[in-house]
Design a protein around this nucleic acid. Structure first.
Lengths: 236, 236
DNA sequence: TACATTTCTTGATCTGGATCAAACTCACCC
DNA sequence: GGGTGAGTTTGATCCAGATCAAGAAATGTA
């Protein structure tokens, strides 16, 4: 681990909506204290319940956010570049509510929470950017909550596939970006059931081949899934 | 409905963490455009999908936030005085993700979203207060999500009762503040099942009499419920 | 290449919780 | 007081999804 960011990583972070409007001075102050590290897969970055020491920015790879209770565990979200995670805990100086671990080899910037809070207190543009980011995060969780409470697991899977297809710019064929067992946990079901759910979507034109998904009858799937902007559109 | 807030309601709102640190000037500007209204029970205040016109502050009574999809409906939360709701939609100028309706006769302040966004852009203390509020809201939803994904309905009910007892300052006996069918929906179950779940908690010392709950064996219930700060403590 | 380990799938069974139906309770109102 | 209608409870049944068990496939490793 080394202190201070190499020049080459500045732009990626600076471009993030969260940092793009802040004072140069303040951004540089943040970066001076920032650690950059390459992590191998399966490394625990954060354990739920611990105090927030760093705001994390994922520059490459992927990170899983999970939570556990009473011996059970569930996947809450997967984070992909370029974005931050556990912003709320950092701002509130509160314990993490989720654990985080790398899924693949990942490059991650660690910005000391103390610095984030200090700059937050002085840089108004940064404070405003944080509001936008938090509002976005809040609305995302609400959508996910609605997905969980209002839909069956089959419906959740169908809509998940449509969302992923949309993210992949809407091709007939695309790859799952998550291991199936993780996807199952994310969707609130068991791996066995996910496997059966894929079968259950065959009548609606979904073909599965390993990580490859083919949606042969888009309209049919849409008719079944009934995607709804107030649940499935993560851009609003 | 009348324009401009009566003096007597200023303090309630001013005391809210969200408004307490902002400039007098700006607070007054907000209040000048604010409508105050008394609503009877069962009035729809907000319909999900509509554009955010007002930030709502509930001064008395209670409001239910719900969401629906494909003919199904679920209770997301109940809001009680003094707090705001649908802050995220107001800030983002995005459509509401939830509907809101009064459960009881309620006094509610309606602050035009345009004004909120304008003051947000100029008053830094207000912007910071919004960050704190949003971070709190975000973490609350995450906790609720963990509750849903990691616990059975019986466990959710047990922990809900312990939380309510705690809010009531920990007496052996306390009242449910929600209709049972709403509570069922909030906990992600049917009314029938809630009824059976109450029965299922009898062995752990829970006695139900209408809206009155008596926890005769605290330790036993706690041992079953296994409350966990990172799910059940809404103050962190 | 062969072996080991993990993930994924499939089948059989079980169970938590939903649904359906009917009684019961209670608040409200003429 | 005696409806009337909503909310709640109880019982019977059903179903989605969990669990258990065992292969099959993929992945990593000697």
């Amino acid at each position: 681990m080394h202190m201070g960011m190499p020049e080459s990583d500045y732009p990626d972070i600076r471009e993030l909506h969260l940092f793009s409007d802040m004072e140069h001075e303040n951004f540089n102050a943040l970066m001076r204290g920032t650690y950059l590290q390459n992590f191998p897969p399966q490394v625990d970055l954060i354990t739920e319940g611990e105090q927030s020491d760093f705001l994390h920015v994922i520059l490459s790879g992927s990170v899983e956010l999970s939570a556990s209770w009473n011996g059970r565990e569930t996947t809450m979200a997967t984070v992909r570049p370029v974005s931050t995670f556990i912003l709320a805990a950092t701002i509130k100086d509160a314990p993490y509510l989720m654990s985080a671990k790398t899924l693949e080899k990942s490059r991650i910037a660690l910005i000391p929470s103390l610095d984030v809070r200090r700059v937050f207190d002085t840089d108004n543009n940064f404070a405003r950017a944080i509001v936008a980011e938090l509002a976005q995060c809040y609305r995302s969780v609400i959508k996910s909550q609605k997905d969980l409470k209002l839909r069956t697991s089959l419906e959740r899977l169908a809509n998940y596939l449509l969302r992923q297809q949309h993210l992949a710019k809407g091709p007939q064929e695309f790859e799952l970006k998550m291991e199936k067992r993780r996807l199952a946990s994310f969707l609130g079901m068991t791996p066995e059931n996910l496997s059966r759910a894929f079968k259950g979507l065959q009548p609606y034109g979904v073909e599965v081949n390993g990580n490859l998904i083919r949606i042969s009858d888009q309209d049919d799937l849409v008719k079944f899934a009934k995607p709804f902007s107030l649940i499935d559109d993560y851009s609003i």
